[in-house]
Amino acid sequence: MKKGLFLLFILTLLLMVSVIPVAAEERLVMATTTSTENSGLLAELLPPFEEKFDVRVDVVAVGTGKAINLAQNGDADVILVHARPAEDKFVEEGYGVNRRDVMFNDFVILGPKDDPADIAGMKDAIAAYKKIAESKSEFISRGDDSGTNKKELSIWTKAAIRPEGSWYLETGQGMGASINVANEKEAYIMADRGTYLAYSGDIELEILVSGDEILFNPYGIIPVNPAMYSHLNYQMAMALVGYITSQQGQKIINEYTKYGKQLFHPSAILPENIK
């Protein structure tokens, strides 16, 4: 009898936890990149919008390639990504409409202290890549079709080098995991500044190259074309574009800091024009 009661208690407890709240909220699915989500910016940027428009923004963070793929399948209403050529193709093919610049951050090239390729302090990222390849110093690539990966590959193309060989390692993992791999192997890696800052306390790698314009990483927001799928929440997607590129949205981006440093620079409105 005691056991029966015990079982009943457990079962009710479990059922209580399992009750699913039925929320009839309006929902907007935004596909974005892991680095954007991991930066923490969206947790500051989205709540005022959600409140103002009484909508829940569901952020799905995946690689840029996957984000665009989701949007093409109609599984997202709007995307916030950073891979300009892929974005342009997405719009050209008719999947996206009304793309707007939002902001940019930058990539940095990290490497070990003893710097076997001797690139520390260089201002030219392409030249630095060349030196890494020539010295056959180990280089870690994410190899996951993410925005960062696309950017890295575009620099190799500009340097006229096809990266292959035992010094070039693809992890197929996220930024953080890849930085860890580079740190353990004392290898070079290109990372976004935000993720680097998050890891800087725990790793030996240092910023060796930064500031080259080619390392700038512009973010764009693109609603999915409502002509492609009938269910898309296009109105809300446009509202989000309006909000993020407005004075209010751009101001939040401009003032967002992490580890005491500004991570993103607004580009819809120039910083000096933000009130």
Partner: peptide, 9 residues
């Protein structure tokens, strides 16, 4: 998975 990726061990 996400927190580890962010460095929040």
């Amino acid at each position: 998975a996400m927190e580890t990726n962010k460095g929040r061990f």
